[in-house]
Structures are given as C-alpha cells and as structure tokens.
Design a protein around this nucleic acid. Sequence first.
DNA 1: CAAATTTGACCTGC
DNA 2: GCAGGTCAAATTTG
Length: 377
Amino acid sequence: MQDGAGGGGGDGNSMHLLLSILADGEEQARRLLGELPPADDEGQLLGRGPAAECCRGVARQLLCTFRKAIAVAKAIEAAGGDSPRSADEGAGAGRDAAQAQERQGQGVCKRRKGLPRWTEKFRIPDDANLEYTPDDGFSWRKYGQKDILGAKFPRGYYRCTYRNAQGCAATRQVQRSDADLAVFDVTYQGAHTCLQAQRRSAAPPPPPAAVAAHDVQRSPPALPDPDMQLLENFRNGLKVETDGLPPPPPPFHGHGTTAFSFAYAAAGAAGYSPAESGGQRLLQGGGCFAPASFSSPAATTSAGPGYFAVSAAHCTLGTHDSPELAEVVSAATASDPAGFDYSLYQYHGLQQHDQYAHLLPFPFDPPSSSHGQHRDA
DNA sequence: CAAATTTGACCTGC
DNA sequence: GCAGGTCAAATTTG
C-alpha cells in the first residue's frame, strides 16, 4: 500500500493538494457557520427552531471535522507519509483507547490477513444505560471478550450470526471508548455475505421527506431511518483512516460539498449497497456515508430502538494492497452494479487524481458529469 | 430445548 | 514471552 498509487500518503503533491482542499472546506464551513443567524435571532428564517439548530449543529460539526482532517493530514505529512491515523487521536478524544487500538491495528493486519478491515465510531444516546451496545442493524453473535492493555473496557468479539448457516465471514470488535462512555469503536472485518446484506441492499429507499421532517438534533428515530442516520453520521463527525492505504482521493470537491469515498467503499463491504438511494442522495448533497437500510428482520443485537449515531467511517483495509481496495469497492458495487452511481467517484475528486482510478474494479468512465470535469479511464 | 452469552484455555504473530 | 484473537465447554436466557 505504501507503494503503488501515491505512496501511502507520502506523495507531497497529493498531500499538499489534500491540505489545500481541506483548508478550502474549512473556510467554507466557517463561512457557513458565520452566515447562520444566532439562535435568538427571530427575524431570520433559520434563526430558531429545530431546523436552525440542526443546521448550526451540522455546520459546527463540519467545521470540526475539517479541522480534524487538516490536523491529521499535517501529521501524516510531518511523519513522512506514514499511515494516516484517527482524527480523534490528534484531537485528543479517546486517545488511550485509540492508541491501544492503533497498536493493535498494526499487528492485527498481520494476524488476520485477506479480509478488509475498517473501524467505525458509534455514539449511543446519552441516556442509554451502560449495557447499551452499538447496533448496526446486522445480527451478531458474541464469541469472546478480552481485556485489552491500556483500555479501560474489555473488547467484545462478535461474528455474524449466520456464519455457520450461510458461511458469512463478517466479524466485528466492539470497544467502548475510554474518553467517552457513549462512544464505541467498532472494528469490522470482512463483508457480510449472508442474506442480511442482501436484504439491506434490496430494501427500498425511504421517502425523501423523512430527512427534512425529522429533528435530527435531539431525538434519534425510533425506527432507524437511513437518511436520519446519514445526517446523524455527519453530525457526529467523521474520520477516514486509510491505515497504510494509498491516500484516498480528496474527499471534497466542488462548491462546498463533501463526500467520503473510502467510507463509502468500506461501508459497502459491510453489506451496505451504494445503490441505495438514501446513501446516494446524501452523499451527493454534502453528507457522508451511513448504513442506508436498517431493515434486517433478523437483527437481534442488544441495542434497542432509538439508537443511532455513527460518528466515523474510518476505513482500514486490512492488508494495505490496492487489490483489496478493489475488493472492498467491488463489494460495494456487487449488490447492484446497474444502480451504482459511478459519478460519485468522480464527484469524490477521482477525476482529479487519476492515480486512484486504477484501484476501482471497474473502468472508471462515468457516463456523464454534472460537475464539468471528466477524466478518461 | 435451542440459541446466545460467558469465560478460561489455547493459538498466533510480533 | 506478551498481547490480541479465537475456540469451545459451561452457563444463561427465552
């Protein structure tokens, strides 16, 4: 991974470009926040009410996310191209656990080879009890628990409930953050090949009105709504950890829009289909990725309804080689190739960084471009 | 009674 | 040898 496409973040031009884009995004986020009227400004359209609060929350989070991303990018640059790491580590939150995870992560890749690996941060509701565990909609069976050096809380080991019945190799590790009890680091390994993933892929998109009508700031939906989850995801911050991969395409492109293509790919490997319209809509609209369909009838995870907050999609592909990235992206496209929106990849800036285009398992030649830039595969 | 969870032992990589 | 990850028997739960 360090070799090949861009040298694992060590490419000075790519990093400068990334920093430039991030700085641009930060500036736009700052402007957005500045242009939003204060909460007590009754004269403004968005001055009050849940919608205004939501916008301010998103804007603040966006700004925070950009700053984290910039810090991480600078750290990578200063380190001479070492694997990018969690933005939270740089920001100080959950540092002990993250460092423990980092140590582990470096070793784990060699322990379990061949399967893509990535980590998400889950935030549970503040009023959740201590036994609350993150629910991603899949059905998991716990097979072990281990005290981890340097971590206050034990790590839980889960595998897909249908491992035996359907040969699904997906596993996940759940560890509560030391710094924030409401935050869980959930490391996934392997894509779901069971029917859960297929059901999710086949699930119909939710009505678009669901996003605007819901107060995402305060109350998580009783029934997981993909769009709400995307918003919540956005609100809780993001990080993309390539963990030794070639640097991802710059996630920001165009006029103040954002997208996280690696999170996209990683989530696809978890069984989430990029063809799901909820994901597409919000990706294109400035959001990020989150599970787009929580309709698994088999879900028996311990978290009850009301949960949701994916705060990160920090993608860690296991063995650092581009073929595995292709595998992940392939998984993302496999469920519905016809519905895959190739323009997203262009939208994510790929057309500007064609050194990444070869990582895709399909010829990168988007049928059309609404952004006026198009590259040849 | 079947399925899920717990937990100590064992395996693997560094 | 240490620490993370997995196995599998025992136990719990519905």
